[in-house]
Design a protein around this nucleic acid. Sequence first.
DNA 1: ACTGGAATGTGAATTTTTTAACAAAAGCTC
DNA 2: GAGCTTTTGTTAAAAAATTCACATTCCAGT
Lengths: 212, 212
Amino acid sequence: MKSEHIPKATIARLATYIQVLSEFKREGTDVVSSERLAEACAVNSSQIRKDLAYFGEFGVRGVGYYVQDLITSIKRSLGIDRAWNCGLVGVGNLGRALLRHREFPRKGFIIRGAFDCDPYKIGEIVEGMEIVCSRQLPAKVKELSLEIGIITTPPERAQRAANYLVGAGIKGIINFAPSRISVPSHIHLEYVDFFHHFYAAAFHIRFADHQE
Amino acid sequence: MKSEHIPKATIARLATYIQVLSEFKREGTDVVSSERLAEACAVNSSQIRKDLAYFGEFGVRGVGYYVQDLITSIKRSLGIDRAWNCGLVGVGNLGRALLRHREFPRKGFIIRGAFDCDPYKIGEIVEGMEIVCSRQLPAKVKELSLEIGIITTPPERAQRAANYLVGAGIKGIINFAPSRISVPSHIHLEYVDFFHHFYAAAFHIRFADHQE
DNA sequence: ACTGGAATGTGAATTTTTTAACAAAAGCTC
DNA sequence: GAGCTTTTGTTAAAAAATTCACATTCCAGT
Ligand SMILES: NC(=O)c1ccc[n+]([C@@H]2O[C@H](COP(=O)([O-])OP(=O)(O)OC[C@H]3O[C@@H](n4cnc5c(N)ncnc54)[C@H](O)[C@@H]3O)[C@@H](O)[C@H]2O)c1
Ligand SMILES: NC(=O)c1ccc[n+]([C@@H]2O[C@H](COP(=O)([O-])OP(=O)(O)OC[C@H]3O[C@@H](n4cnc5c(N)ncnc54)[C@H](O)[C@@H]3O)[C@@H](O)[C@H]2O)c1
């Protein structure tokens, strides 16, 4: 099929598929049907086939999908068949957790620069990386070819951090701070908000719709 | 209106509305129109009115919404007009960041229990809280009236952690580990997955659809 | 009290997403 | 290599979510 517009929900599901497929692979399963994958991901099987159809034809009729091949194909489809250099702004509690997280490099997102404005933190080494002054952002973005900026500053500083990143020539921003920020339209912006999951949990527990 | 089924997306947006409304409040704005709120949240204004209509009528025609009142109304609608006791399982990098995060208690999610299975961690004090052995989970869930479980163990341990939590009588689970888990249908389960945001960023940067 | 202006709440129209259904294709058996 | 079984890719149908459009309601000013 190979289509133009891809739903946001599809991207989120593809991430799940990769996760579950990786588990299948670890268990030694070589081939899965959309039916079986769907069950493990708690979605409908045509949903899976449709999601994949946006990007190409990856299965074999009458057989299913070869697990390793499908992982590779999805990764290529998403553009994560290569490494992405990331810069993290705001080395506090959350920033440190991200810096220390082994899964980032393993998944191809390599945090190459860590920036903070606090003079007590500058120069400190976290997970083998020296914390650098935010003012050096423009220089470092170029030097290290950083493409994705991660914002983990307090919310009131997020806009400033974004401005620095945009000015330095970053291509996408992932904002963990709970504040809306504005960036030029050619910069891709993602908000990460844990709290809505907590809200959703509270809501469903409180007003229990035990129907799903 | 007051409707039955509420879209997941609506819940996520309500979280955004609260965020933006809180900013308005801080700036001293008393009244907003759906138009102005929509602009700040980057959504359509009827979207906002429709989202709110699921829960009741909170505005004044010809005027707009009183900021503080609306915050209160949304919070009541979501069931976050009271505190929720949470228990966190797996006090590693991410678990610590969450424990130290001041925003949780401020938003009404109070982490009252921290559990780990590592004997070197048990007994340690983090943010004024003693890390307790996972085996004590059932006892503590009752003692502290924990309702929401937060899983921040490694992925291969997430199912076990969930089993403990469910057995102990928890009502909802928020899983930060990248693995699918199964729980009885009366337990509300939320997955938090940062990576799909990174995937989305990579995808959009790589195959730039500058049309959004 | 009456009028004009403004912005909500909501039914209808539109768009998007999900699910169902099935023809086409691949492998397996005999 | 024909027929049977299986499961994909895709088209059509259904469902859900979003946006439009406007009658309704409220406030302010006169
Ligand atoms: N900690 C969590 O678990 C958690 C969870 C969800 C969201 N968040 C959000 O993530 C952000 C960070 O949280 P945290 O707990 O790590 O906070 P933190 O206060 O521990 O860390 C913030 C860091 O940002 C640095 N900083 C401030 N302004 C800066 C600037 N202009 N340039 C560069 N660095 C700057 C500070 O020096 C500090 O090191 C916050 O917005 C928070 O709301 C945190
Ligand atoms: N660190 C991050 O930034 C980050 C980001 C996204 C997702 N995650 C996910 O969150 C989880 C935790 O990440 P982390 O970096 O904190 O890992 P970590 O290894 O630092 O921490 C895991 C903790 O869980 C404890 N644990 C293991 N099994 C347990 C059990 N059965 N009961 C109780 N405790 C147990 C371990 O002792 C350890 O303290 C992982 O699944 C990770 O993939 C982490």
